[in-house]
Structures are given as structure tokens and as C-alpha cells.
Design a protein around this nucleic acid. Sequence first.
DNA 1: CATGAATGAGGATTCATTCAT
DNA 2: AATGAATGAATCCTCATTCAT
Lengths: 211, 211, 211, 211
Amino acid sequence: MQEDSIIEAKQARSQQTQKKLLAALSDSLTTQFFEHISIAHITEQAGVSVGTFYRRFKNKETLLPYLYQDFSEQFKDWVSALEGNKQGSLSDQIALLVTECNAFLHAHAGVLRTLHLNSRLYPEILTKSQLFERSHDYQQLAALLMTYSTEISHSKPKIACEMAIFMLISNLIEKVLYSELTPAIASPLSEEENQQELTLVLQNYLQSPQA
Amino acid sequence: MQEDSIIEAKQARSQQTQKKLLAALSDSLTTQFFEHISIAHITEQAGVSVGTFYRRFKNKETLLPYLYQDFSEQFKDWVSALEGNKQGSLSDQIALLVTECNAFLHAHAGVLRTLHLNSRLYPEILTKSQLFERSHDYQQLAALLMTYSTEISHSKPKIACEMAIFMLISNLIEKVLYSELTPAIASPLSEEENQQELTLVLQNYLQSPQA
Amino acid sequence: MQEDSIIEAKQARSQQTQKKLLAALSDSLTTQFFEHISIAHITEQAGVSVGTFYRRFKNKETLLPYLYQDFSEQFKDWVSALEGNKQGSLSDQIALLVTECNAFLHAHAGVLRTLHLNSRLYPEILTKSQLFERSHDYQQLAALLMTYSTEISHSKPKIACEMAIFMLISNLIEKVLYSELTPAIASPLSEEENQQELTLVLQNYLQSPQA
Amino acid sequence: MQEDSIIEAKQARSQQTQKKLLAALSDSLTTQFFEHISIAHITEQAGVSVGTFYRRFKNKETLLPYLYQDFSEQFKDWVSALEGNKQGSLSDQIALLVTECNAFLHAHAGVLRTLHLNSRLYPEILTKSQLFERSHDYQQLAALLMTYSTEISHSKPKIACEMAIFMLISNLIEKVLYSELTPAIASPLSEEENQQELTLVLQNYLQSPQA
DNA sequence: CATGAATGAGGATTCATTCAT
DNA sequence: AATGAATGAATCCTCATTCAT
């Protein structure tokens, strides 16, 4: 019994360290690019020694899957929170979704930029199961819109809701994370104005009478 | 006279070297992270010495704008071609735009991936003037849509056209270059189906009666 | 009474741990350089924690004398066995010594290689008392030859016998353990032929009429 | 022509650096074991930067074959010198060989110890061709003795000469490099006395009347 | 006592940049 | 001008050792 609790204590300590390291990386990512962050810097931020880092991770890249996992959990939480905050109409729901998503991306800009870029350069950092999970999260968002299916004029509402989510995310990622770059510079709108227009785009897509 | 030709010869050689270096970087970028490509590797690939590299470029980052320039010219050509192929209606124009853009991105997927990602990792690689130029190209595309302004119901048609271009590009980049990743996995559509839906999204946005 | 048995049990456990650690080192030494074996590796192999290692040994080097001790005992046994098998003449005794020594080295090639090399890399691992003991063992072998002193023509028979033992061992170690390397490659003889010649060398040395 | 000389100059400089590094290692080996010498220490001794080391060698171990090559050349030189210093009798030749060999080993003790041990731990550092060369050198020493074949009583004089060389080397390596260890401790003789006895051993072996 | 997480000094290694040839 | 050898700061990484649990 005692031995068990000792082991648990050790594991807890170990978990604690891992969390500290991930948090340190997360923090650093708000001001620097992943590639420019040294392990010494991460460990200093985390208040642990470099050896401790290497006891847990093979190298800096090994952190990324964990970072992704962390982010995934926060994304899931965010999705759940949204589900608990249903709106009176599809239109309002879309507006809320846009606003909330914009805020969420802002809050996680550093981590997101790293994950977004690195997963494109090194697809192997994301496991199939992680992508599957993320896909499922998106489905939940689409399902949230589907609860207003009576308001949706599209002949294949599920397809349309998924497409809406895709456009929502791809637009906001570019606007929030890379506002000064292609393709965001195609539109001169401020972030707020962009949200309004994006809302409009999605509302029109889902609600307009179609051929 | 003779000196002139010597200088010309030297300039030609110089041009040649520059091209070789750009090609070497371009090649390397298809398999490796820009950050992980060493100057030694680039020069080796190009068959010149490191000293020669430094005679021509300040550092690795200085190479990217040249790469970008190449692509820019092709983009401009594509825009011009589109302008010479006006359609009978906004609806048709949007459909054509989506199809053509999808094809263009496909044709340049390799270098695009590089530029798209690396400009995000190293925003300083793109000069302000280059971004301005690109911005101008996008304006041209928006202007193309604006020629159908009578069909546009949006209260601020220019804003809407720009937004449409932004959404067009961000959607297609993700679908064409990173179909297996977030956020493209939010929608299960094939590339063709995605084009159809994207067309619909844009048409509805520009043409629908609005509040 | 009970306490005693607890202590005994603890001592037994302690002994057990020590043996496991020695065995782990011994195993590792057959494939790796002592210098390249980490304590973490030894303890992992032995199935104990690093802390336990440090409770029992000051450091890695402290382990080797124990390894040496094991071998020493077997060497002593072998010497004793030889003493109980006296021959009729010096000549025969030398022949037997060569044959038996060759066989003994063969039988212990693995651990010998370790000790032979590592004692050269880390002379401090062998205590003075261990070297003294080994020296004593060699004296016993020399003494064995000295029992035939009437047949020895050398003016300082004891010196000669000791020299003979030295040459016997150094020749056989090289031939048996490192037959493909310098200096064994100086002579193309098979192991059996080498034994014959070595016998001849020693016989001539001890028995020839000298100036 | 000029280009050629530039290249030659560069190569010469490069060679120079390599030599400095090898010399630095050689020097260090007289006071420290190979395993305990850091690359920083070697480069400091050589008066070059660490980067320079890595431009030429993958790591410390990569130096060993070069060290061996260096040593081999000196060994060959030593053999040649001996051949130019023929003695009046086999007896004198053996005496000279023992003395000279003892001196040679002394002069190269540091390097030799490293090569001797490391070639036993990592046989792959020596190529077959290098061993073949060394074998050839030993043959030359044996041939030197064979020039006195009329004085050799052994029925197979070539075999005997080779065996003599083998015993010469194995005895002296142990006595010169590892005098305090097994098996050298079997004999209490000083280095000089050991040389005398070794001379006696070899003389008796080659010259005694045999069965 | 045993455990194994944490430490951090020490050493290995890389690579952009300089500069003698 | 071109070359590529040399530089050394910056970073990575290991592992013996300690110590809280």
C-alpha cells in the first residue's frame, strides 16, 4: 500500500515536470518560433535542469506530439463549452461560433502556429489517431450547426455544415495567425470586420435558397 | 569592347551561379525544413563554394525573396490570363475562378508549400514591396469580380469581393496542399466536390439578398 | 533470534544484489568497453535501481576488483591442480604447463579479455593486495619448475623460472585471446604448433648450457 | 598552373592541420589515456579550433587508424634502420634487437598503449591491409635473423625466427607498457635485466642443439 | 532501505561566417 | 573573384551522482 503511494507520488512528480516543460514551451511560443527556442531556454523557463528534459524527451521535436495533445484537450473543452451554450437561431449560432473561434485561436496563437506549421513540415508528428480525434471534434462542431437543420436550405445539410466548419477554421487561422501574409492580405478588413463578413459568408451559405 | 564582353561574361556567370543556388535551395526545400538546410548543403548542391555564396547573398534568408519573385511572376501571368477570359455572369466567373485557381495551385504545389510555410516561419523574408505586389495581384482578382458589380447584392461590394478572394485562396491552399491535415479534414469532400461547394459559398455570399 | 534471521535475510538479499550487479557488468563487458558502460545500463541489466548501486559501490570502477577476485580463485585452483600433478622431468613439466595453461586461458577467454584489457586501462581497479596475490600465484608456478632445479643450467635458477612463467603467460595470452592481432601475427603457427615451439623455447632457456 | 599551386597550397595546409592534430593526440597519450582525452584538449594542444577537428575527423575514434598509420611508418623506419646495422653474429644481432626494440617501445609507449588496447577492444579500427603490412614488417625482422641461418640449429629456421619475433614483442610490450601488471609481475627483473634474460631466451632457442 | 527523478558539469557537435591563399 | 580551410559561439546531449519520497 505504502509502496503504491510512493510510486504514485513519484509519477505525480514526474507528471508535474512534464507539465512544467510543456507549459514553458507554450509560453515561449507566444514570443518566439519553435525553431529558435533552445532546450536550455525551455528548461530554464520550466525551472528544471536540462538533464530532466532529456530524461523525459528525446529532443525538442518529441515535445510536439505532447503539445498537440495538450492543445487537443483544450480544443475539446472549448467545443464542449460551445455545446453548452446553444443559441436561438442558426444565424446567432454562426455568429457566436465565429466570435468564439476567433477568440480561441487568439488565446492559443503561439502553440497553434507551431503545430500548424510543423504538422505541415513533419506530418509524422501527428498520429493517425490524433487526426481522427481532431476530425471527430470538427464533426461535433458541424453537428452543433446541424441542430438547426430546419433552417438550413442546402440539399445536403451535413456536407454543408462540415464545409462551413472547414471554411471557418481556414479563414480564421490565416486572419488571426498570419494577418500580414498571403492570403490574408487579400482582404483589408480588421479582425472584427473579418468576423462579421465571415459570419455573413457562412450564414448565406447555409441559409440561402439554392438551385 | 573587350572589357564589356568580359563584364558581360562575368555577369552571365554570376547570373548562372545565382540560379544554381536558387535551384539548389528550391530542391532542398521539397524535402527539408528551411531551418535545417545548411549553407554548406546548398552550395554543395549548387556546385559552388561557400565563399561564393557569401559573395552573392548576405545569408540564407536572403535567398527566399528571389524564390518568391519567380513564383510571383507566374502568379501574375495566371491572373492576366484570367482577365482575358471573362465570363457571362458572376456565377460563371466564380465557378471559373475556383476551377482555375485549384488547377494553378496544383501545378505549383511544390514551391508553394515552401513559400507558404517559410513565409510564416520567417516573415522577414518577404519584402514589403513584394507583399504589396501580391496584394495588388489579389486586388486584380477582386476587380475581376467587381466587373459584375450589378449582380452583387452586398452593400460594400469591393470589400465583399476581396473577402471572397481571401476565402477562395485560403480554402484551396488547405484543400490542395494539405488535404490530410487540419483544417481540411473537417470536410470529407473530394477536391472536385470541394470546388463545387466553394463555388456555392462564394456565389451565395456575393449574390444573396442581405439584411 | 528473529532479528538475526532478518539480518541474515537482508545480508542474503544484499549478496544477491551484488552478484546481480557483477553479472550485469560481466555480461556487458563482453560486448562493450568498460568506459562506455553506464551505471544506468548496469543497474537496468541487474534489475535494481541506481540508488541501490550507490549504496553498495562507490562507483563503476569499484566493481572490477570483485570481478577479478572471482577469476583469481579459479586461477588458484588451477595452480593447485597442477601442483598435484608433478611430472618426471623438467622437460615434461614444461610441456604440461604449456598445454594446461593454454587450455585454462581458453576456458576463461571471456572474463580474461575483460580483466586483461581493463586492468591496463584502469590500473587503479586492482588493489595492491590483489596484485600481490597474483604475484604469489606466479611464484608458485615458478616454484613448481624450481623443484627440478637440478636440471636447470641457468646460473640463477629462480630468476629463470620466473622469467619462464612470464614468457609463458604473455605468449599464450596473445596467441589465445588475440591470435589475429599484433604481435601474434608475427608467427603463423597454429595454436598447437605454437604450444610446441613455446615448450621448446622454455626448455632451451632453462636447460641449455650457458656462458 | 596557378590554380594547381593554390590547390596544392590548400591541401598542404590541410595536411599540416591533420599532422598537428595527430601530433597533439600523440603527445597527450604520453600522459593520459585515450579515453580521457577530450577533443577540446586535442585541438587546444594542436593550436586549432574544434571546428577544424570536425572538418577532418568524424570523432575521436576516427583518429585511431591515422595514429596507427603514423606509428606503422615509424615502425617501418625503425626496421629499416635495424637492417642497415647488421651485426657479426646471431648472438649479437639478437642482443641488439632486444635493446633496440625495448628502446623503440619506450619511445612510443603512449601511442602504443592506445593502439594495443584499442585494437583489442575494437578490431575494426585496423584494416586487413594494415595488419597485412604489419605482418610483413615482422617478416622483415624475422628475415633479419634468418641472414644468420647457418648459426641456427632449429630444424625449421624460418618458423623459429618468426616465433622469436613474436616472443620478443609480446615480452617487451608487457614489460615496457605494463610492468606493474599481470603477467609482467611474474618476473621481478628490472627492465635491463629483463632484456638480458630475453636475449638469453632467444639465443638459446635459436642456437641450442635440438632433438 | 530502495527507488528513480533531478541535477549540472563536462564534453560533443554543428554551422554561419571570415579570410588567407 | 573563387575557394574552402579555419574559427568559435551556440547548442545539444550524456551520465555520474545526489536526495526527496
